[in-house]
Design a protein around this nucleic acid. Sequence first.
DNA 1: CCAATCTCTACTATTCCAATCGGGATACTA
DNA 2: TAGTATCCCGATTGGAATAGTAGAGATTGG
Lengths: 149, 149
Amino acid sequence: MRISKRCQYALKAVFELARRNSGQPVKIHDIADTQNIPPRFLEVILNQLRHGGFVDSRRGNEGGYMLARTAEELTVGQIIRCVQGSISVTDGNSEKPNKTESFFGDCAFDQLWQRIDNAVSQICDGTSFAELVEYEMAEKTVRVPNYVI
Amino acid sequence: MRISKRCQYALKAVFELARRNSGQPVKIHDIADTQNIPPRFLEVILNQLRHGGFVDSRRGNEGGYMLARTAEELTVGQIIRCVQGSISVTDGNSEKPNKTESFFGDCAFDQLWQRIDNAVSQICDGTSFAELVEYEMAEKTVRVPNYVI
DNA sequence: CCAATCTCTACTATTCCAATCGGGATACTA
DNA sequence: TAGTATCCCGATTGGAATAGTAGAGATTGG
């Protein structure tokens, strides 16, 4: 499992929506600016997230995107699976199709990959965007304790 | 971190050498046959492992490859790093270069990626080829308890 | 010398990825 | 109803990574 740029953008976009937590829809352009994402690429990505049911959209003058669920319910794992289909380290390589003949070491390696996939999934599925936002805010205040506007 | 075919071949090749555990060098062709790897591709890969210091080779009529260390000392993590350079999930994407400006969520995501990388590393570095061979043998005898030759 | 093997560099074909483009649909606003 | 700002969607491009191949050279043992 490698986290592609596309996937990182998706996560950042959802994070941004969670962070703003505004009842109003947020425009692609605003998200793109705040998170430094190529706008037209983000367009494609948000559309994918919409089809996945993770964000809702509104068109027209005051349109934009908003979360389809609460930030507590949305996890990193869900977004990754929506964008890259799977979370497994041996993806795109799956030798499963012709698994009629097995070779020495297959059992051992299968178990190894599964252990890794489980560990990763556990972290991703156990991390909600609410937690991410919370962590970010805590970090920001710790690192800039006496900031001035 | 995605485990490429190349990397899986490398791991299987080292596994095969560990499994045979023969004082004699094993020919590329034999490894390729046993593990179902394209021979000339395996050639390139074994050479890389040799440069990494994980296997030794002998040329000539009775030449071939053998482990440069014991199977107990060789870990999955070492081989992966040798073949694909890194074990991080955010590799090839690293936004580190222009990390002068930071965006909302960077702290949170950096911490997330690090947690994942640590979990994966812990498994890979904690798994030796001796263990893999041992596990494979145990599985084989469990799954075929009364096999006949 | 010969044959089997590894060694090295280069090459190709395919797939994947990041990003862009043009035009269409929709919704608000005046 | 015209206009504009936004999302919607399919196609396309350029470049990098991946999987695998090719051929000539070096080494070893018989």
